[in-house]
Design a protein around this nucleic acid. Sequence first.
DNA 1: TTAGACTTCAAACGTTTGTTTGAAACAGAG
DNA 2: CTCTGTTTCAAACAAACGTTTGAAGTCTAA
Lengths: 206, 206
Amino acid sequence: MRDNPRFSTRQRILGAAEELFAERGFAAASLRQVTAAAKVNLAAVNYHFGSKDNLIEEVFRRRLDQLSDRRLERLAELAKSESATLEGLLDAFITPALELSLDREGGSVFMRVLARAFAEHNSNLRTFLSDNYGYVLKDFAAAFARMLPQLDKQELYWRLDIAVGALTYAMADFGMIQRRSGESERAHREQMAKHLIHFTAAGLRA
Amino acid sequence: MRDNPRFSTRQRILGAAEELFAERGFAAASLRQVTAAAKVNLAAVNYHFGSKDNLIEEVFRRRLDQLSDRRLERLAELAKSESATLEGLLDAFITPALELSLDREGGSVFMRVLARAFAEHNSNLRTFLSDNYGYVLKDFAAAFARMLPQLDKQELYWRLDIAVGALTYAMADFGMIQRRSGESERAHREQMAKHLIHFTAAGLRA
DNA sequence: TTAGACTTCAAACGTTTGTTTGAAACAGAG
DNA sequence: CTCTGTTTCAAACAAACGTTTGAAGTCTAA
């Protein structure tokens, strides 16, 4: 999609920006690199998005609106059913991210962009993410609290913090484990999600 | 130390660079910002380090040489004693990092720089770190393999990957948990290490 | 076919970047 | 003191940055 003429200028810029932000970071990826990769004119960024900062926010918005909705849908389904487990709750959080990362049009790359947002101590970006998507984490935290009543608030928050770290790091593919040759991207990601759920569930319950 | 005249120009630059790299990233922190914070002349960076890239490597070298040595010392002590546990092994890895992060001269900031190195897909940097400090992770991985003989190689590597993610994220203080008012930095960090060991040990054993 | 809005384009704007330069200031040894 | 090597300094370099401009091109509806 990065440079496919059948997509609009807007979409091509978003796709190229996402890839370059994941690869080089927000500051190091220049608009000239982005527009060259997207095969559009340099001025198109400021015409369609107003500024580089707005472009960065749009890159997040395009994916996070859908991701947040899917996560909350799964959480709502879980709340209705009587037989919710800790693994099910983790699955509700992880599977939408897994599906996004398997999206044919560059979804996997976005998870790296998202992890970069944690590394950046950029307060504008953190405020934007917290203001617009913080309620998702809040809802999940409440569900975890109900699932693990034996843990006091402090203890729970410590463990959720650690779990989010493991999830973020793994979904961004920062680790050392490479996809085995002959194994599909999908199979690799599903393996990862499986191990992630198993590991974090044990850590949360311990 | 950042601008304390009793330290050498070289040390002041390293200190200021470490802080700004942690705060803004390697690309976004400019040499002019670094030299201004260190209260030294702009040209001093190229005089003492040759280039910005060399400066970045030196920021890592200054801390990682010591950190790696301490970790391997603890690992060697553990290998001698007969009563090694999984928690002890995790402690051998984490405690040196904890001590570094409590170092009065900006050690805590360095853990954020280290976490940024994971987020950066910069291949020069990754090669530098892997070439110079990869043997530490290798030695620890072998020790974990001995400690968890019931896990096959694939399973073990998945879990270690996830554990390293949790550790990296937590030690870099990327999470949401804030130090409670009235609690010392040391007490906060020690709490974190305790939870980290408990959580990861459960995940590895699960 | 023409009017009007929307989109693309090459070129230029003023800043800021990493790096280099050559002279000035400093240190310790003879 | 003078000499010598080391360190600091202000100034300048070309290159790259985000952004703005006004004209050229494209499309739709009348």
